[in-house]
Amino acid sequence: MNTHQRTNWRGYAFIAPATIYLVIFSLLPIVFAGYMSLHRWHLLKPDKPFVGLANFQTLAADPFFRNAVFNSFVYAIASVPLGVVTSLAVALLVTRRLRGVGVFRTLFYIPGICSQVAISMVWIWILLPETGLINYCVGKVNGWIAGAGLADSGLIPTTTNFLQEPGWAMAALVAMSLWIGLGPRMIIFVAGLQNISEELYEAASLDGCTGAKSFWHITLPQLAPTTLFVTVTTTIAAFQLFTPVYMMTKGGPQRTTDVVLYHIYKEAWQKFELGMASAQSYVLFAMIVLIAAVQLWLMRGGLATEEAR
């Protein structure tokens, strides 16, 4: 009891710097965003009148903001399941006992740590009409088809300007997210896979449970917490998409890639309406919390049934 009393205040001293820091730069901004969202807060105007919930009412009726929310959902629904499945598949591949597999793990991780501005510049080239990597490959395929006498050349157009076509622009952003996020997600799955006890597989193989069966009955259930973690963090990240949109599409064409965070960016730093931008940030925050909660709840159901089996 004596030592308990004695060390007490030192504990506060040790955690004080980090705690004060988090209060000022994490908790205070959240509260302050709420305060700002209730005002007509223009960056350059000294007068910041209280407007109550007017900002939120405007938002609810704003077709452009709704469009941004819709786009964010499209992006998340397309990129999250694909991202989780591809990185799990690659994780299974790089946990095989193969020579040199560690080198591949490192290589796959590289896009994840790179500057997204630089990566976006390279992807602009990949997606160019005619000269870009994708259209170049399409051209080659066309050539082979024509060479084999199956059809005339030019079967598939090589003039698609992916970043200027509605639909394609969003697909391009999704493809890029798969490419960037593959390594970081894969490493988490690798950690999860390595935590599964070898004995489980040995016991199951005695019962004749190997290959695909052991994947469904052992790997996937054992990996459920990891999958949940990856899914939730990937979703949160998907709703915070910004840099590729800023660099590659500026929200276009025809606002089809105008996602929420980019919309907030324009509201705050082009129109200087910080009050409105704060209201939008709150809506984004609420969306993220709600979706993460739903995912946790859904997956918890999944976990429970697996355990009951």
Partner: peptide
């Protein structure tokens, strides 16, 4: 309790903090 609050702040999406942080 304080440690739990630390963990909770990990859930706040950083980008949401940017507008108020800028004002601060």
């Amino acid at each position: 309790a304080v440690f739990f609050v630390f963990l909770l702040t990990m859930m706040i999406p950083a980008q949401v903090l940017v507008v108020p942080l800028f004002a601060i």
